[in-house]
Design a protein around this nucleic acid. Structure first.
Lengths: 239, 239
DNA sequence: CGTGAACTTGAGATTTCTCAAGCGGGGTGG
DNA sequence: CCACCCCGCTTGAGAAATCTCAAGTTCACG
C-alpha cells in the first residue's frame, strides 16, 4: 500500500533502499475512511501529522462563509494531502470522494527523515512544486478558457494523473466525483457543467458517467482542452 | 539590496549570520531591467540560474497560443521569480511591471547553500508553499467571487504584500500594472475591470490611478473582498 | 505639438447563472 | 423483499453578469 507513495516520490527523484525504508518507517498505521469523510479540516491545528493517501480518491477545497465552494485539486493514491503542514497551517479542507485509506506521518518524524535522507526531502519539495504547477494550470483554465475547454482540460488532467497512479483500465478510470464536485472545481454552475458534459459526450470525446471517466477520443479531448501534460512532470508514457 | 531577499526569508525562518552570508554569496551581480522586459521565458532551459527580484515589480503569466493571457502572480522586491527551476523547468514567463534589478543565483550553487544551511532550504521551501497558498486564494477568487469582490481581494493582497516588502507609504503604494494587467490576472475583460474599478472608487474603498494604489477605506475594502491575510504568512503588523 | 498606449463610456451580444420541475437509481427501513 | 425517499442528473426558460465591438478622451513621452 505504501508502494503508491514511494512510486509517486520516485517519479521525481531516484531513491535508495535506505531512503525507501526511512519513508516506510515514518508512516503510521493506515486509517480507513468512508466516502464523504473529512480528512483534513481547514485551520485544523490539532493533529501534528501529515496525511498520505494510500487508496481511494480525495479533493481539497476551500468553502466560503455563505456556502460557495471552490475545489482546488483532486487526489489519487500516493498523494500527500496536506504537505503545507510541514511548515505552516493548512488553509483548506480535504474531503473523501470515495472510501479509502490514509496513513499519518508525524510531522517531527517526517522532518527528521528529510534531514537524514536529502533525496526524500527533494522529492517531497518537488511534489509541492508540481502541486503549484497544477494550481497554475487551473488558474489559466478558470480565468481564460471557455466552459467547454475548461472541462475538457480538467478531464485530461484527472485521467492522466489517475492513469499515472495506476488507477486506469485502458481508456476508463474510476472517478467518483459528482457533477457538483466538477462544477465547484471549474467555477461553473451545476446546470452548465451538466450541459457541457453532455456536449462533450455528443461530440464523442469523453463520457463521465457511473462514477467513471471513459475517454472516447483522447486526441480530440486534448485538443478541446488545449491540454499539454508537461506541467504534471510525469515520466514519459505510452500514447 | 540583498536585504530585501534576506528579510523575505527571515519572515519565515530565523537565520544565523552564517546563513545570511551563504545566501549573500550565492547571488551574482544584480542586472538592471526596464519596464516591459521579459525576465523569465516559458520553457526557457538556457540559463541555469534562479532570479531574485531586488527592486521593481514583476508578474508571472502564461500566454495561450491565441494570445489570451492569464497573469498568475505579482511580485515585490525580495521575491524569487522562478523557484520551480530548482528542480524542474518553469512553465510560465515573468515580465517586468517597472524598471528594477534582479540578481541571478546559479542553481548548483544555490543547491549547495541549501545543503550547507538547512534553515535557508526551509525558508525557500516555505516561500514556495506560500506561493501555492496565493494560487489557491486566486483560484477561489476567479472561480467563485463576483468581479467586485475579486478585484477588492486582489487589491488587498497586493497592497498587503507590497507593504510587507516595505514599498508602501501610508495608505499609498506604487503599483504600475495597467488595467490590462489587472484584467488578465482576474479573468475579466478590460472593459469590465475598468467599470468595477470605477465603482470601487465611487464607493470610497480604493483608487487605482497613476500607477499607484490608494487605499481609502481598508476595513471596507477587506470586507468587499472577503480578505483575510492569513494565507500570506506574514508576521503580524499594525492594523 | 504629434502619437500611441491606456483609459473611459455606450450599446448590443453571449455566456453562464438561477429558478424550476421532472426523472432515475440505489440505499434503507419497515 | 419491496416501497419510499433522497440525492444527483437532466432539461427548460428567463435573468444576470460579463463580453465584444466601437468610439472618444486623456496622458505621458518624444
Amino acid at each position: 500500500m505504501v508502494g503508491r507513495f514511494l512510486a509517486n516520490l520516485e517519479n521525481h527523484v531516484a531513491l535508495t533502499d535506505a531512503d525507501r525504508a526511512g519513508v516506510a518507517a515514518v508512516l503510521g498505521p493506515p486509517r480507513a475512511f468512508k466516502a464523504g469523510a473529512d480528512l483534513v479540516e481547514d485551520g485544523d491545528d490539532g493533529p501534528d501529522v501529515v496525511l498520505v493517501l494510500l487508496s481511494g480518491q480525495a479533493f481539497r477545497h476551500q468553502t466560503l462563509p455563505d456556502g460557495r465552494r471552490q475545489i482546488l485539486s483532486f487526489h489519487a493514491p500516493g498523494d500527500v494531502l496536506d504537505l503545507p503542514r510541514l511548515f505552516m497551517g493548512v488553509d483548506y479542507s480535504v474531503g473523501a470522494l470515495s472510501a479509502g485509506e490514509a496513513a499519518p506521518a508525524p510531522r517531527a518524524a517526517l522532518l527528521q527523515v528529510m534531514a537524514d535522507h536529502p533525496r526524500v526531502a527533494q522529492a517531497l519539495w518537488k511534489l509541492s512544486l508540481v502541486e503549484a504547477a497544477i494550481y497554475r494550470a487551473w488558474l489559466v483554465g478558470v480565468g481564460r478558457r471557455t466552459a467547454h475547454a475548461r472541462i475538457a482540460h480538467l478531464l485530461c488532467e484527472v485521467f492522466t494523473r489517475l492513469e499515472a497512479a495506476g488507477e486506469a483500465d485502458g481508456w476508463r478510470c474510476p472517478f467518483p466525483a459528482t457533477q457538483i464536485h466538477l462544477s465547484d472545481s471549474l467555477g461553473l454552475s451545476v446546470v452548465h457543467t451538466n450541459r457541457v458534459l453532455r456536449t462533450l459526450e455528443r461530440e464523442g470525446l469523453v463520457s463521465v458517467r457511473g462514477r467513471e471517466i471513459r475517454v472516447r477520443n483522447w486526441a480530440g479531448l486534448m485538443a478541446a482542452g488545449e491540454f499539454d501534460a508537461g506541467y504534471l512532470q510525469l515520466p514519459a508514457r505510452v500514447a
